[in-house]
Amino acid sequence: MREITYVEAIREALFQKMSEDETVFLIGEDIGVYGGAFGATAGLIQQFGEDRVIDTPISEAGIAGACIGAALTGFRPVGEIQFMDFVTLSMEQLVLQAAKIRFMFGGKAKVPFVLRMPGGSGTGAAAQHSESLENWFVHVPGLKVVMPSTPYDAKGLLIASIEDDNPVIFVEHKLLYKIKGPVPEEMYRVPLSQSHVVRPGKDLTIVATSIMVQRALQAADQLAKEGIDVEIIDPRTLRPLDDEPILESVVKTGKVLIVHEAVKMAGFGGEIAARIAESSAFDYLEAPIRRLGGLDIPIPYNRNLEYHAVPQVENIVEEARNLAALKV
């Protein structure tokens, strides 16, 4: 199969949905001739014109509001927040309006839009351009939260997100934009709320999100050489969460390590751990549930400090190795 990058997969999904559905339009900062800060929308304004690729002033609340209002009245907008950090300026519209409109109005309205945003560290952009804030949204009923980890999922999940009738927070990762992977040329969907067994294994389960899936895969290759067979599960959609494959995997392996880039404190890993602990899978645990997440600090500028602020391949290898060695 043809291989393209993650950012190309996103662009292809946007292009194909916009070609097929006239109600889809893009709105955000510098997404037109600039092509988006990370190039996700490059060339689309030439294809679709400025009525469907709308450059906005620096107005994140306005972008979110524009998505909501257009979605309420028949469109399927795809907004872009240039860096996930800036979504803090849209929070009222997303949390108090988009997430609640349908419920507050007794189920009589729908708000189908996608808000794309790149999160994550590793680019030297420091504390205000490197946040991983997905769990803020995971805590809000009415929103969906999607985090693709591969080019294949990026395209399929974005198409499914645009077709979904709810507000979807679509979290991309800056370091993933350039990774390559097999992506079909035709349109396809990766259904939302379907966790994915990325790598089957029998000794240990790693639940990872976004870039940590890629790091877990590298860790698994190293661990395989040591005779440790790791199963990796990518939830892909964090809300609503499909926890069945995770619980089934824990029953099979008896050991689980949860890895995400976001700060560990009150992070998504806590929810996964709690669901395992509350379920019958708990009886099958042969060791304590372990979590790896970002340190309890903002992302530092210095290259070495930044590197050590979030889980890396060697941290996953070490944690998994220790966990695998634990005997009941």
Partner: peptide, 25 residues
């Protein structure tokens, strides 16, 4: 009638999207 709003100014950004939608249609 797209609704009253419990947040002061909460409906104002939404008007931008409704206006865009009208203009597009």
């Amino acid at each position: 009638n797209l609704g009253a709003n419990g947040i002061v100014g909460g409906g104002i950004p939404i008007s931008v999207g409704v206006g865009l939608s009208i203009k597009k249609r």
